[in-house]
Design a protein around this nucleic acid. Sequence first.
DNA 1: TTAGGGTTAG
Length: 607
Amino acid sequence: MIKSPILQSSRHDLTHHNPAEALNSFKAKDQDFLFLLKRCNDIDEFKQIHARFIKLSFFCSSSSFSASTLLAKCAHSGWDNSMNYAASIFRGFDDPCTFDFNTMIRGYVNETCFEEALFVYSEMMERGIEPDHFTYPCLLKACTRLKSIKEGKQIHGQVFKLGLEDDVFVQNSLINMYGRCGEMALSSAVFEKLEFKTAASWSSMVSARAAMGLWSECLMLFRGMCSAKDVKAEESGMVCALSACANTGALNLGRSIHAFLLRNISKLNIAVQTSLVDMYVNCGCLDKALHIFKKMDSRNNLTYSAMISGLALHGEGEAALRMFSEMTNEGLESDHVVYVSVLNACSHSGLVKEGHRVFEDMLKEGKVEPTAEHYGCLVDLLGRAGLLEEALETIHSMPIKQNDVVWRSFLSSCRVHQNVELGQIAARELLKLASHNPGDYLLISNMYSQARMWDDVARTRTEIANKGLKQIPGFSIVEVKGKTHKFVSQDRSHPQCKEIYKMLNQMEWQLKFEGYSPDLTQILLNVDEEEKRERLKGHSQKVAIAFALLYTPPGSVIKIARNLRMCSDCHTYTKKISIIYGREIIVRDRNRFHLFKGGICSCKDYW
DNA sequence: TTAGGGTTAG
């Protein structure tokens, strides 16, 4: 073995041929040994030090402090194969102490070998080595990552028995473990019991809820964190809160977080900036998002991905493709999420040729393994454009298992393009895979209804009733004078209900002059035409628009958010309203933004 | 004398 410079630079020469001399000077050598360990940078140097250590230890019975330090250095080094080497050292110990077990647990957790960490802990238990407050944070992290709630609960019991429950590090780990394993009540219970809530306690609560998609809880906690004494809201909490704003469309809160960040943090990191881009894009402010994006010093593939899917969301497919080339030119590699964003952008803008090329390039490059999601995008792209045969061929040629998403997307296209024959194939396959999704039955029933196949409509409806499936009620939210108002279909609960319905009648009267006639096929109920007209008139989006026209200043932009995809009648209706009343109307539905202006929509009727 | 929790974004 070549002697490395680090060994030559030791303060003393470690070589002793006389065992007695070695024994006498061991204390000094011990210091040398620790000094060398500290400066050791790679596994080869480490192995040399380890060899010396064995040689010295042969003469001196043991030096457990040094041995433990040696083990820790290796286990936490991050070198290739370091945990295997650490395990071999650990196995050589006659009676490893608590520190050594903690070292192994932490080492395995850092290397994402969570099961091994749990094995080490059970060995610790078997050998009767008592864990301490350093043992549990890492161990609980292993349970969190493995989503092993059963083991997590047992470990919590042991923490309690050992009287370690008061340790704030252990408590924060418990909050996180319970939260990320979906046990929100237990997570909150630990949090509530905390005498001193640290920034990490709050962060654990906020980020665990964000990870579970509990956005409103996440925002509520975030507000609590900001108003808590002695806790400074940190960037990580901000990022989670911005993500919650993006997911709920909470623009005002998002803006105030942005303002707070600008006031308190001199240089925003890339994660925070990406979250800002994503928040603005999802709250309908594409220009603001682009402004932040352009001013960033550096961007990574997550930043680009946020911007690309943002452009897709706003129907800017060509701009999204330009952004994608820019990203490639910057030397950044696309991952599977970026490809989904780009394919979606093409799909939402009818860029069939371009989307197909992106998909082919992805296959050719071979760096990203296509998933069912990618095939879903391709099927959507072809299907929306009316290329139903090609879409079906794509599904049949998928090298991976067909899932409900691909068939649902295909079914939706068949409905739009009124191809019942292919639609029936899609319906059959879809119901085989996910028979309990009420939305699927609705889509099928809608398709039959448009084709006036009433027997099939009735059969589908009976199936819905027999299975006890409940349709998700649609709603629209509109902000007027800083207050949000939520309307459901046929809503008559609003205090201004009388004025709203009077307005709706007036609107319909004017719409008739613009050549609007209601699309009654959108109503699935078995009722007469007049009733269908009434039902259609009371769709939540129309009620929300009527309310906004009454109570917002003339010429101002109307912003609406809804939980479901817009029906085609509401789409036509809103286009005409934008001309008649000279208003810009922005509607965010489940899939994207629609900007209605001067009688046309930014989606170019392609959604 | 050795060590620990929450890392956040698409």
